[in-house]
Simulated scan of single mutants.
Amino acid sequence: MTFQTSSESKSVITVRHLNYYFGQGDLKKQALFDINLDISMGEIVIMTGPSGSGKTTLLSLMGGLRSAQEGSLKILGQEMRGASQEVMRQVRKQIGYIFQAHNLLSFLTAKQNVRMSLELHEEYLNQDMDAISTEILKTVGLGNRVDYYADGLSGGQKQRVAIARALVSQPKIVLADEPTAALDKKSGRDVVEMMQALAKQQGCTILLVTHDNRILDIADRIIYMEDGRLAENPNSAALVH
Rank of each mutant, 00 (worst) to 15 (best):
L230S: 03
I173P: 04
K172Q: 15
H211K: 08
V168T: 05
A197I: 03
H211P: 10
S236W: 07
L230P: 00
V209H: 02
L216G: 09
D190I: 03
A197R: 14
M195S: 05
M194L: 13
A182T: 03
G188F: 00
P171F: 05
T205Q: 09
V168L: 04
R214Y: 12
P234D: 05
K186P: 00
K186D: 07
D212S: 11
D184N: 15
E178M: 14
L198A: 02
N235V: 06
T180L: 10
D217T: 14
G228D: 15
L208R: 02
D217I: 06
A176Y: 00
S187Y: 01
Q196D: 14
I222C: 06
K200R: 12
D227Y: 13
C204S: 09
P234Q: 06
S187H: 06
D190W: 04
D220Q: 12
R229K: 11
L208F: 06
I222N: 02
H211N: 10
I215C: 07
L183R: 07
E178A: 13
I223G: 00
A219L: 06
L207K: 00
L175Q: 14
L216V: 12
Q202H: 09
Y224H: 14
C204M: 11
L230H: 02
P234H: 03
M194A: 05
A219T: 06
L216Y: 15
N213E: 15
Q170K: 14
V174C: 11
Q201G: 07
P234K: 06
T210H: 08
M194D: 10
S236T: 05
T205W: 00
I218H: 03
Y224N: 07
D212Q: 12
E226L: 09
S236G: 07
G228Y: 10
M194P: 03
V168Y: 07
R221C: 02
N235E: 15
K186T: 01
Y224R: 12
N233S: 09
R189L: 12
D177I: 03
S187N: 12
G203I: 12
M194E: 08
A181D: 12
K185R: 14
L175G: 12
A182R: 04
D217V: 11
L208H: 08
R221E: 06
Q196F: 10
